[in-house]
């Protein structure tokens, strides 16, 4: 697995500013700040759960 894509410092500062101003929501801040970092397992589990639920219905 390669190095995760970190958000550059300048962009992080800009995101902080946009969030403080209310231009972006917390969800948008979370998504753009994290940029997929540490999130692979959560998304895989979520996918697995959704498939499980669709099989039950």
């Amino acid at each position: 697995m390669g190095e995760p894509e970190k958000v550059p410092r300048k962009e992080r500062k800009e995101l902080n500013k946009l969030y403080r101003e209310g231009t972006i929501t917390r969800k948008q801040l979370m998504y753009r700040m994290r940029n997929g970092l540490f999130d692979h397992e959560r998304l895989a589990t979520k996918e697995k759960f959704n498939q499980f639920v669709s099989r039950l219905k």
């Binding site: 970190k6 410092r9 979370m30 970092l37 540490f38 959560r42 759960f49």
Partner: peptide, 27 residues
């Protein structure tokens, strides 16, 4: 199933929040 989904969504939101917090700790 609905309750299970509700709990999962809640859990996923918390997990989502934790991974995001981890990114903030990293920065």
């Amino acid at each position: 199933i609905q309750e299970l989904q509700k709990i999962f969504v809640e859990l996923d939101e918390k997990y989502d929040d934790e991974t995001y917090t981890t990114s903030q700790i990293m920065y």
